[in-house]
């Protein structure tokens, strides 16, 4: 009997993990993700402001949800993706993994800041305060510090591969904060409301509100992919000019 491994078609799974083949691919993908981001973003904004009804409790201030929730989701999701790339870099020692992790960090930090900023602007009219030291808000602030820590640590180490590894360890340790953010509203008695959308129960909001929020979340998603691809290209140009065709 033939060894099953040799029967498998010889796909080189690591082909696109080399900066040389990933660089042009990333460049070709960017316009598509940007176009998708614009499309989802514009329809999402239309639904958010012209279709979704006024909230009977909060009036128009609730419309902040349309940027607040997608930004908060992205802040956590990008961290998980960043930590996965970082972990893959440690395990497989592939050069691209560390680059991807570092390409994602600034965009993740930006969405974390935006989640906090829009949260403060929503908190003022609904809770009467910009900020409280409650579990959800504090753990999201810790997420911002984790991103800043990752960015400063990797920037401080001159040898790029060593910087990738040090950053990866920090990113992986910080993963523990993500479930804390997510479940903080369940585990602790907080001022922050519970999840608006969950897999277990029907969404606690009007369908049009939910659609607007999901469209903007998709837009943020597409935007983040485009931003990460553009940034990884610039990292490749800097670190491996030959792979980018710049000698």
């Amino acid at each position: 009997m033939k060894n099953p491994v040799t029967v498998l078609p010889s796909i080189n799974w690591f082909k696109y993990s080399s900066p040389h083949s990933f660089y042009p691919l990333a460049g070709r993908m960017v316009p598509w993700f940007l176009a998708a981001a614009a499309l989802f973003g514009l329809t999402g904004l239309y639904v958010a402001f012209f279709v979704a009804p006024t909230d009977f409790q909060q009036g128009e201030s609730y419309r902040i949800i349309f940027v607040h929730v997608p930004a908060a989701w992205m802040s956590m999701f990008i961290y998980l993706v960043m930590a996965s790339w970082a972990g893959a870099g440690l395990v497989f020692n592939t050069r691209l993994s560390g680059m991807m992790a570092r390409a994602l960090a600034p965009t993740g930090a930006m969405f974390t800041f935006l989640a906090l900023w829009t949260g403060a602007l929503w908190g003022k009219p609904t809770w009467g305060t910009w900020w409280v030291w409650d579990a959800r808000l504090t753990s999201e602030l810790i997420l911002l510090f984790l991103y800043i820590g990752f960015l400063s640590l990797t920037a401080a180490i001159e040898d790029e591969r060593r910087a990738d590894r040090a950053g990866a360890v920090l990113a992986l340790v910080g993963v523990v904060n993500i479930p804390i953010i997510y479940f903080s509203v369940v585990w602790w008695n907080t001022l922050h409301q519970g999840a608006s959308v969950s897999l277990k129960s029907a969404p606690k909001m009007a369908t049009t509100m939910l659609i607007g929020m999901l469209l903007l979340a998709l837009a943020f998603w597409m935007y983040s992919i485009a931003a990460a691809l553009l940034r990884v290209r610039s990292i490749i140009r800097e670190r491996e000019p030959r792979a980018a065709g710049e000698d």
């Binding site: 006024t54 009036g59 128009e60 201030s61 419309r63 902040i64 940027v67 900023w117 602007l121 929503w122």
Partner: peptide, 11 residues
């Protein structure tokens, strides 16, 4: 925005 213009547009 029903009096919440600063907060909504600020976000």
């Amino acid at each position: 925005m029903g009096g919440y213009g600063l907060y909504v547009w600020g976000s």
